[in-house]
């Protein structure tokens, strides 16, 4: 099977030096693969390691052991061990990440926050702003808010800015950490549509969702985590009774 990303025996432990070197186990021996264009849903109780897994894949966390092979056009790269420039280049060029909470760039308007990744890729500021406005509009953020500072927005509005910032550059690979948790049903549906559109266009995705509706709308397969270990991984349809509701 060809894979876009393959995690092999991935583990993440934290050593808390300020607490007498206490060790916390976030992930243990996690292995799975995602095919190109596939959507893998990740479910599990709070504290089961879902966010830690995504952060390890994006290298916001440094994996303790194991590998994360990511297929680029010039061959596989082990994201767990790659040098910083390689990781930054992939983040800039093809791997997107939507965190649970927006870390707003201070004093920057929502539209500019979203346009920034495009400008960095060489788009003209005008075209970047146009695309940013279009994607924010499709997520239901009114233009009056697009010209406001995200720091002053509600959680749901910030979440859409965050999602738009990742979707706008149409990455090849996208990690989603509960990107719709603060949204009402109507805007959640808009967000899911936008995510699905990108997935249908070929972007491989790994996403954490707490609600069955989002999961069944998007996921091809589901990975169930329990206490940092893979409890089950299989087709989304079969996961319903296992996964949903946790």
């Amino acid at each position: 099977m060809s894979y876009h990303l393959k995690a092999d025996s991935l583990s993440k432990h934290f050593t808390l030096h300020m607490l007498e070197g206490r060790r916390l186990r976030a992930l243990e021996d996690v292995s799975f693969a995602v095919e190109p264009g596939e959507f893998l849903g990740v479910v599990g109780r709070s504290g089961s390691g879902k966010s830690s897994l995504l952060r390890c894949l994006y290298r916001r966390y440094l994996p303790s052991s194991g590998s994360v092979l990511y297929t680029t056009e010039s061959g596989p790269v082990d994201l767990a061990a790659a040098d910083e420039r390689t990781v930054l280049r992939l983040r800039e060029g093809e791997i997107g990440y939507v965190s649970q909470f927006l870390r707003a760039i201070p004093r920057t308007l929502a539209r500019e926050v979203v346009a920034e990744p495009l400008v960095r890729r060489g788009f003209s500021p005008e075209e970047a702003a146009e695309r940013a406005a279009a994607i924010l509009g499709s997520l239901g953020l009114p233009s009056s808010l697009q010209e406001a500072y995200p720091a002053t927005m509600s959680g749901g509005e910030q979440q859409r800015v965050n999602l738009a910032r990742a979707l706008v550059s149409r990455p090849r690979f996208l990690l989603l950490d509960e990107p719709t948790s603060a949204l009402d049903p109507e805007t959640r549906a808009l967000s899911l549509d936008a995510i699905r559109e990108l997935n249908d266009a070929g972007t491989t995705m790994i996403g954490i969702f707490h609600d069955a509706e989002s999961l069944s709308a998007l996921a091809d397969r589901v990975l169930v985590l329990e206490e940092g270990c893979v409890r089950w991984c299989g087709p989304a349809g079969e996961a319903a009774e296992l996964a949903v509701g946790v």
Binding site: H17, M18, R55, R60, Y61
Partner: peptide
């Protein structure tokens, strides 16, 4: 030494952990 976001979210060295905390 490393990626800034990784150092701030997952500091490895005892001193960096103290600094971040």
């Amino acid at each position: 030494a490393g990626l800034t976001d990784q150092i701030l979210e997952d500091p490895q060295h005892p001193y960096t952990q103290l600094l971040v905390n």
